[in-house]
């Protein structure tokens, strides 16, 4: 296993409040890593630190390093456009743009300079197939994306991310707004995508973490309490707090 993302002494502050404390761990390439923990524990905040989406929020300060392929993303010379091209993100609420299905997928490639029709068509077909959506929408690519169901929208958003050819895909509770059947399809998709992409997923659902992830990090009050192979963490937690959380004693 090679480490894709290395986190060294990472701290994050909202103004004077410290939201993340001294995080240190490694995320492996072509694996799914799940972040679990109660609401407000910092797991989403950390996820948004990886592609620096927290830069959009005023008064956020960080200390420490997050390295992707040895390169610190908080290096002053780091280009945000390049970073986000390589680190795609899927949000909690499906957020397709109010454009056609086609235009949603080609939005990323277009802003990164691809304008040939044939090339764009090829990207649309390939990514929609990868996202298991092609068969459902191939006859209506010009239809508005907002007309799709929640589950289809979330798969469309994943296709939109795949279209920029990232190495890493961050997912912030991607199934929390979906029904059980859509959730199952999404989980199957994540397991498929693992073969080519490094995936980090925040989830509230501990069964989901067990079904799809290789490693799991348990976040609590801005600390990572335990970080281990998923099987090990759920079956033999070494920390008292982890054991209590996965047993449902708080949440």
């Amino acid at each position: 296993m090679t480490a894709k993302i290395e986190v060294h002494d990472f701290n994050l502050f909202y103004g004077k409040n410290q939201a993340l404390h001294d995080l240190n761990f490694q995320l492996n390439e072509r694996e799914v890593t799940a972040f679990i923990g109660p609401s407000g524990c910092g797991k989403s905040t950390f996820l948004r630190s990886i592609n620096r989406m927290n830069d959009l929020i005023p008064n956020v300060k960080v200390r420490g390093q997050i390295k992707i392929d040895q390169q610190n993303v908080y290096d002053p010379h780091q280009d945000l456009v390049e970073l986000r091209k390589h680190v795609g993100m899927v949000f909690q609420q499906p957020n397709p743009f109010p454009l056609s299905i086609y235009d949603n997928v080609v939005y990323g490639p277009r802003i990164h300079g691809i304008s040939k029709k044939a090339e764009l068509n090829e990207i649309v077909e390939r990514t929609l197939k990868q996202a298991n959506l092609w068969d459902e929408v191939k006859d209506r690519l010009d239809a508005p994306a907002l007309g799709l169901s929640g589950g289809q929208q979330q798969r469309l958003v994943i296709a939109r991310v795949l279209a920029i050819q990232p190495d890493i895909i961050l997912m912030d509770e991607p199934a929390s707004a979906l029904d059980p059947i859509s959730t199952e399809r999404l989980e199957e998709l994540i397991i498929q995508l693992k073969e080519s992409y490094t995936i980090v997923i925040v989830t509230h659902n501990m069964q989901q973490a067990q079904r799809i992830s290789d490693q799991t990090a348990f976040f609590l009050n801005g600390y990572v309490v335990e970080f281990a192979q998923t099987q090990r963490l759920f079956q033999q937690p070494t920390q008292q707090k982890t054991a209590e959380y996965i047993a449902g004693q708080f949440g």
Binding site: L56, V81, N95, F97, Y107, H112, V157, V161
Partner: peptide, 27 residues
């Protein structure tokens, strides 16, 4: 326009002006 659309655009590597001209003005 919901903030989530802006975030979606920035997360794809769009600059502020690209987000404005290609997404916000259009929608």
């Amino acid at each position: 326009i919901p903030q989530s659309l802006r975030e979606g655009s920035y997360a794809l590597g769009a600059t502020r002006w690209q987000t404005i001209s290609r997404l916000l003005v259009r929608t």
